[in-house]
Write a protein that binds this DNA or RNA. Structure first.
Lengths: 213, 213
DNA sequence: TGTACATCAGTGAACGCGCGTTCACTGATGTAC
DNA sequence: TGTACATCAGTGAACGCGCGTTCACTGATGTAC
């Protein structure tokens, strides 16, 4: 698929509208209206709404995962045999998200909101798509976390990784709403970076907690 | 609204279908078909789909919050001045959920899945509904958590409470899916109670982590 | 250089479908006199 | 006790609407000879 201007405009609009309202609640008509392209262009370029959703994801995740791969490669080359802590691993991941968002504050929020939606809306095809496309990289991150937490049984580590994923996806995908509540309650500003900085030690401590079994 | 058999049947079907597929993806036709009642009965009894969603929530949350109130009252009467730990507070809440689900394993899963959906789907009206209806009880729980974590700044506690909420809502609302992955990966059974037992120390340790600011 | 054809991005209008909602209606039960 | 009326749960069929998708079409650009 050649990346015509129309394709990019559709992806941009779809990305922001999906993040704002969810998948089912966003119509192709609203996407094409915002993108100022013809309604039929979506099906012409992407084939279906489902494929458009996957294309929006691929545009985010492919460079993100490449960035994670690349920075892990570089680190391992420079410091072979060094075992990373969970916080360091999380920092690799979060720095890759930041880099891929290219400084665009909005894209970072969109990224996580989409991830949260993928799990919470009836989009089984998306979960499968993500799992298949990016199995290699997520497997590598899992292995690193396993090395960082040798004291955990595999079973308990599995769940704790998903607890982390949940806390992150929920927080970041509801970021705008939560920040609005926060600023109302405390009358103080609070950036996304602040929240991520607070999230890291929470996740790290949770993962290292004494076993609950 | 008199609780006729029809009303109960609609609520039962709506509850399980919403939890299974989400709100937007569940049509009134599928609800009334499963409930074996007339399509028009939903609008007759509830007025609109929106109000049906809120009624489904109210049926869950009202007894749940009453249960939390009652058990906190009882505990404070028996042990006044005792400061609860975060884990103890969480156990009060989770035991109330269990009691309200009346031993019905499915209802516990549905409960959390609905809560997750309320945050993640475009249901702003639901969040507001929940916040307004149940402000009293959630405020009381917040205060208890504040007493349990006097070392935290209010701002950081706010975020950590939402990290906990996120981890819990995400995990429990995707429980069925996550358990399927787990059983595939490890070839072992795993009950909801097991997962909740593992979640508690994760959340407790996260909340008590050293400050990230 | 000129002509014929192919390819391709994009268009405008319509399609059929499933949706939430409405409405005139039924039939059972309760109430007043 | 009998009759007239009111209330209420529930029904069947239709309404209009917005949806994703389709299709015949246009007009620009590239390619072959």
């Amino acid at each position: 698929m050649a990346h015509s201007d129309t394709v990019t405009r559709i992806l941009d609009s779809a990305e922001s509208l999906f993040a704002e309202r969810g998948f089912a609640e966003t119509s192709l008509r609203s996407i094409t209206a915002q993108a100022e392209v013809n309604l039929a262009a979506v099906n012409y370029h992407f084939g279906s709404k489902k494929s458009l959703i996957q294309a929006v994801f691929a545009r985010f995740f492919t460079p993100f995962y490449q960035m994670v791969e690349a920075s892990l490669d570089m680190h391992e080359k420079r410091h072979p045999e060094v075992i990373l802590t969970v916080e360091e691993i999380l920092r690799f991941v979060s720095r890759s998200i930041s880099k891929v968002s290219e400084g665009d504050r909005r894209r970072l929020a969109i990224f996580m909101r989409l991830l949260g939606l993928a799990y919470n809306q009836g989009q089984g095809h998306l979960r499968k798509f993500l799992q298949n496309e990016y199995r290699a990289v997520s497997g590598r991150v899992m292995d690193l976390i396993a090395k960082a937490t040798p004291e955990l049984k595999d079973e308990e580590r599995f769940w704790r990784i998903h607890f982390m994923l949940g806390a992150a996806a929920f927080t970041l995908s509801n970021m705008e709403h939560l920040r609005a509540i926060f600023e109302h309650d405390f009358d103080t500003q609070c950036t996304e970076e602040d929240v991520v900085a607070m999230l890291m030690p929470f996740l790290g401590a949770g993962v290292r907690a004494q076993s609950g079994l």
